[in-house]
């Protein structure tokens, strides 16, 4: 099972907590998924408001680890401040570092990402950077102190699955010892299975489960697919070939002409 910053988690599935039809469905989906990590965020609270307290009580009840994010931040400074606030509220050094560089694709800003990762790592954070599948960026993030990488499969919320299989395969092969989570863009359980079969350690998703017609069933489906992919890697898959190779023995075949 994946190990992030020395912590082994019970499932290769990380699940977001946003966009569910109701808190009850969120809770049921988590139970069905077996996910051991939930992503959460910080947003403005009105004076006298209870939304934050109520939500936090639901998450605590799940008994999972939380991975706070810096969603919506567009600069390193903003992301660092948000991370500091999240560490205090959620009581964890883990931070899913998002620094958005492009509004339409929500593509991470690689330059600000490295800058923020360096600042946060030096301050004791354990950074999970949401990144593109760029090899050089991966190198820079590891230099900055990250011990986990989280490349996207496709832009957040698109459900496209891997848009650059070559890039994700190359990244996985280039850094075999680094725990890596494919984060964002997965729409179907088969997408999760495919990246796990490539050797990724885990997948992080939210919209594909929360926006499904039946989020609870879809959460279970993703969990099974991720687990299937993980087992397949360990089972050493057969090499692919172009031409057919009969699986039924030729010896003993009857001549019936």
């Amino acid at each position: 099972m994946p190990v992030f910053y020395g912590v082994e988690v019970a499932s290769p599935l990380l699940l977001g907590t946003s966009q569910y039809p109701s808190p009850a469905v969120l809770t049921e989906a988590f139970r069905a998924s077996g996910a051991g990590i939930a992503t959460v965020s910080l947003r403005r609270e009105a004076g006298g408001g209870r939304a934050g307290e109520d939500f936090w009580a639901i998450i605590r009840e799940l008994g999972v680890r939380v991975l706070p994010n810096t969603a919506g931040c567009h600069s390193a400074r903003e992301a660092v401040t948000t991370a500091q606030m999240a560490r205090e509220v959620f009581g964890t050094p883990w931070i899913k570092l998002e620094v958005i560089g492009h509004t339409d694709t929500l593509q991470p800003d690689p330059f600000a990402l490295v800058e923020a990762a360096r600042t946060l790592s030096a301050d004791g954070f354990q950074v999970f950077p949401y990144m593109t599948e760029d090899l050089v960026l991966a190198d820079r993030l590891l230099d900055a102190g990250c011990e986990v990488l989280m490349p996207w499969a496709a832009p957040i919320g698109t459900g496209l699955g891997m848009v650059n299989p070559y890039g994700l395969r190359a990244l996985r092969e280039r850094f075999p010892g680094v725990p890596m989570v494919v984060d964002a863009g997965l729409g179907l359980p088969s997408h999760a299975g495919a990246v796990m079969e490539m050797g990724y350690d885990a997948v992080l998703l939210n919209t594909a489960v929360a926006k499904a017609g039946d989020p609870v069933a879809m959460a279970r489906a993703f969990a099974l697919a991720a687990e299937a992919g993980r087992l397949a890697v360990g089972a050493d898959p057969m090499p692919a070939r172009s031409m057919a190779a009969a699986s039924t023995p030729e010896i003993g075949r009857a001549f019936l002409e």
Binding site: S18, Q19, T39, V40, L42, R44, I59, E78
Partner: peptide
């Protein structure tokens, strides 16, 4: 734009026009 930890709130003096952000846990992906 600068984080003020709980322990520092008593010493942090506000001035006219300060921008205060107060954030709480929320759903996130």
């Amino acid at each position: 734009g600068a984080f003020v930890p709980v322990a520092a709130r008593a010493e942090r003096i506000l001035s006219e026009g300060d921008r205060l952000e107060v954030l709480a846990p929320r759903q996130g992906g």
